[in-house]
Design a binder for these strands. Structure first.
Length: 554
DNA sequence: GCATTTACTTAGTAAATCGATG
DNA sequence: CATCGATTTACTAAGTAAATGC
């Protein structure tokens, strides 16, 4: 357990043998039935197959907010016109004159029909899907059968970037076998391309973990077919990640002293680096790589913060030296926080912002590469994101210790667990859109609680009466207890749900919290592991569930 | 006991990080 | 140093299962 890296093979080699059946391709486009029409400027118009397919992509999304956005509409229209025949192109010049109504209606009918399928039809469909999974969903890696995470080629459609993405609405093209690179071992059977097709390339690169790849046409980036999270390869990588974070725990005090000392440096780079590290450590900010302007939504992380993203307050809400953050991070999720900082950091920030305007970088001498180089010199394997893992996991461990009691019942223990989990999610700014039916379902639950309370009160008085008349057979006592338990459970549920309105627990659970902390907690608290990890999660964290004793400490 | 609502799971894929490459 | 490639992290939506009400 002391060696950090599991050395399986010589450097960089990920496997010795890899065999699979290639990716699964989405079905071909089925042209619209003859009674479904597209209209331009009020006139019926039969589209070519290529133009029709793209029209359907748009029509399918008509209920979505995307289709009301200017950028989305413009990008879509531009790309759609490229798919048209010259004749179509000369007619169709204005998206506002396009009537997708019938196509949209047809789509909705189809969705409805799928929902209303009989049990048998659903069963048939399920079996067909299972057949696809059986055929394409697994591979042999070093003679072990492993599940593939995403074995399907992404179907064509309209690009749905997050936030104000400049490329939203562009046509994501259909991928052909001729676009796909297959990776497998030399001695493996090469997967058959679909009939009449060939692969772009077959290579045998055992220094990577992917089975197939293609280049996507929106950003020109590469997409990969990779293993499921429960695979040995991914599991070991995950374990390594947490071991590095634990190693940070052992030297984090030194590192903190180092960057606090660096705040006094005469070198601008060093001071900027120190302040950035202070943020990354204290606030669990992401590194913040620079991004190409105009290619993606305007989002930032620590190193790419600009002056308009922070406001300095000498005094705010009774605190001194408060930094107010307001920026869009990964996935255009807003980060808003008011944080009291030490005065040296505050003064440095003021200096960094001198003579700068909105749009200028706060840390103009710093980038993630520089920062990570420095970090790796402090501890092998240390990068900016290790701080997030470390701070997330250590927070969970602390919170669990603080919040949970052995004497609590299971529902209360789980509330404590969720609260600890939530503290981490808040730290990492993992948000979700409040569920559309949140208010309603909250009101429903409250109504049920009230009803139960009433019932309980009634039952209590009845019991009293029964005891008085000495005709109680002892079983209404138990009934009452059950009723009380149920009420408590619902109240706990209500609290939990309310507190969780805008917070997503999944991301931290899956990616930041050392599962051994949770496994040890379950053992200690005598909570079944199934209560905190569902089947998928148990599979992913099988390594931790197997190896962890109740005395594990992160 | 069945239909409907609600909760939970899984799939899908975009968007980050970070080291390698030229 | 900028770009690229591989891998991890992220949220949303669709699908499915469970709970609930009639």
């Amino acid at each position: 357990m002391n060696t950090l890296k599991i050395i399986h093979y010589e450097d960089g080699v990920k496997w010795k043998s890899l065999e699979h059946n290639g990716p699964y391709f989405p079905p071909e486009y089925q042209p619209l039935p003859d009674d479904v029409h597209f209209y331009y400027d009020g006139k019926k118009m039969k589209l070519s197959v290529a133009a029709e397919e793209v029209a359907l992509f748009f029509a399918q999304m008509l209920d979505h907010e995307y289709t009301t956005k200017k950028v989305f509409r413009e990008n879509f229209f531009k790309d759609w016109r490229k798919e048209m025949t010259p004749e179509e192109r000369s007619v169709i010049q204005d998206l506002n004159k396009c009537d997708f109504g019938e196509i949209h209606a047809m789509h909705k009918t189809k969705v409805e029909a799928r929902k209303n399928m009989t049990k048998e039809e659903k069963q048939t469909l399920k079996e067909a899907n299972q057949k696809i999974v059986d055929q394409y969903g697994y591979c042999l890696l070093d003679h072990h059968k492993e599940r593939i995470g995403n074995f399907k080629i992404e179907p064509p459609g309209l690009f749905r970037g997050r936030g104000e993405h400049p490329k939203q609405g562009m046509l994501k093209k259909r991928i052909q076998p001729e676009d796909v690179i297959i990776n497998c071992s030399k001695d493996a059977r090469i997967p058959d391309p679909p009939p009449g097709h060939h692969w772009k390339e077959v290579r045998h690169d055992n220094t990577v973990t992917w089975l197939a790849s293609w280049t996507e046409n929106i950003q020109g980036s590469i997409k990969y077919i990779m293993l499921n999270a429960n695979s040995k390869l991914k599991g070991e990588k995950d374990w390594e990640k947490y071991e590095i974070a634990r190693k940070l725990k052992s030297c984090v005090d030194d590192i903190r002293n180092t960057y606090l000392g660096d705040l006094k440096s005469r070198e601008m780079v060093t001071r900027q680096r120190a302040v950035a590290l202070y943020f990354i450590d204290k606030l669990a900010l992401r590194a913040g790589n620079e991004k190409e302007e105009g290619e993606t939504a305007d989002t930032v992380g620590c190193c790419s913060l600009r002056v308009e993203h922070i406001t300095l307050h000498e005094q705010l809400d009774g605190n001194k030296c408060v930094v107010e953050f307001d920026f869009l991070g990964k996935d255009s999720i807003r980060y808003y926080n008011k944080v009291p900082v030490i005065s040296k950091v505050f003064k440095s920030l003021k200096r960094f912002m001198d003579n700068k305007e909105p749009g200028d970088e706060l840390f103009d001498r710093l980038n993630t590469s520089l920062l990570n180089k420095h970090l790796s010199s402090l501890m092998p394997g240390l990068t900016a994101k290790v701080f997030r893992t470390y701070n997330a996991s250590i927070t969970l461990q602390q919170q669990l210790k603080e919040l949970s009691n052995k004497s609590d019942n299971v529902a209360e223990k789980l509330l404590s667990y969720n609260r600890a989990n939530r503290a981490v999610a808040i730290l990492c700014n993992h948000q979700r859109a409040p569920p559309k039916t949140f208010e309603q379902s909250m009101a429903n639950l409250q109504a049920k609680i009230d009803a139960r309370k009433e019932q309980l009160a009634l039952a209590k008085s009845e019991l009293k009466q029964a005891k008085k008349e000495a005709k109680d057979k002892g079983n209404s006592d138990i009934k009452l207890q059950r009723c009380e338990e149920h009420l408590l459970k619902m109240e706990v549920q209500a609290t939990d749900r309310e507190e969780n309105k805008q917070i997503a627990l999944g991301t931290s659970k899956l990616n930041y919290l050392d599962p051994r902390i949770s496994v040890a907690w379950c053992k200690n608290m005598e909570v079944p592991i199934e209560k905190i990890y569902n089947k998928t999660q148990r599979e992913k964290f099988a390594w931790a569930i197997d190896m962890t004793e109740d005395d594990f400490e992160f």
